[in-house]
Design a binder for these strands. Structure first.
Lengths: 179, 179
DNA sequence: CGTCGAATTGATGTCATTCAACTACAGTGG
DNA sequence: CCACTGTAGTTGAATGACATCAATTCGACG
């Protein structure tokens, strides 16, 4: 990705790292402005609510950027953990550094395009959460991310969908019957 | 807002308009790249699902920008309607024009800041929808948008929260008892 | 005063959660 | 190589939250 090569030049602190399955790259409660481009592998971000329950916010596989823009924007401690789900190769860079840097118009446009894409994804997610049943959300998930079901444990998919593992299990059982 | 004054200079098609309560500024199914800065008044965007049900996506009151970035980004027909809830004064501008224009780094940074804020809002919304009960979501809504309950009909608030008007009514009843 | 949509209320239904038990399987240490 | 352990996934019964349906009240406005 072109945009990323530019970033690497500008942000001297950026670097390529590899991390192992199970590693936590970011803990909730901290303040950070790091972002992770996924060259290979898979990340997830999730929060833990007042009752101790995990909620998967997003998965990021090859080609996506994982960044906790929410906390960075308001400069408040993160609500999100970032975890490595597969042995991965990442490029870490500092969004703060990026914001402060002087970039060309083209580079800014790239940045804006990336953010627009993110907004679009979130908008669809919100509308889906509001308007669809668990089964519909699961089908939509399968259609949107066809490769993830093979790479992600089922209970994390359930968490992403906003349902319990048991509920997802029954949904899947019912669906096999219908094929 | 500084950023906006710049936009007006750049986008020759931008203009100030006033629109009346009940007017629909954008219909789902169309392709448009217009955005609305709310100088005074109140807008909402909403979708209509397959079963004919409305789902409020966001409200935009004074100082906010209403823009359907999702459809603009993917260049697909909008899923969203935009409706005027109060007699309002708006500044309309063309996001497409803005993307294509050559802007200063400062202007782009403003743009990015606005988009970050939007992403932050959506992130919170997603996590809230996934992790909280209807009552918790309502309380969070009251805390975040203290002025809206007085300006927005209750069934639209219910729709924003992802519940039925009846459910919201019962929640409110229970809450009065507890004060 | 009459009308129409908004809001409330109660009875019933549905979907998903919770709790609990059980199976399948991978990893560990003996 | 086998027993032991822990985690993921499945299944079923009971519960709970919210939806749906239907009736009534409230309030704004002509």
């Amino acid at each position: 990705m072109n945009y990323l090569q530019e970033i690497i030049k500008i942000d001297k602190s950026s670097k390529e790292i590899s991390c192992k399955k199970g590693e936590i790259l970011q803990y909730a409660g901290t303040i950070t402005s790091l972002a992770y481009y996924v060259k290979k592998g898979l990340l997830r971000s999730y929060s833990i609510d007042g009752k101790g329950k995990e909620h998967v916010f997003i998965f990021a596989s090859e080609g996506w950027i994982m960044a906790d823009i929410e906390s960075q924007e308001f400069n408040t401690p993160t609500e999100l953990f970032i975890e490595c789900l597969e042995n991965s190769e990442l490029i870490v860079f500092d969004r703060k550094c990026l914001v402060e840097a002087k970039l060309s118009d083209e580079q800014r446009k790239d940045e804006i395009r990336l953010m627009s894409r993110r907004i679009a994804v979130l908008q669809r997610r919100v509308l889906l959460l509001m308007s669809s049943s668990a089964k519909e959300r699961y089908n939509s998930f399968l259609a949107t991310y066809p490769d993830l079901p093979n790479r992600v444990p089922q209970h994390m998919i359930a968490s992403y969908l906003g349902i319990t593992p048991q509920a997802l299990s029954t949904i899947r059982r019912e669906m096999v019957g219908k094929n």
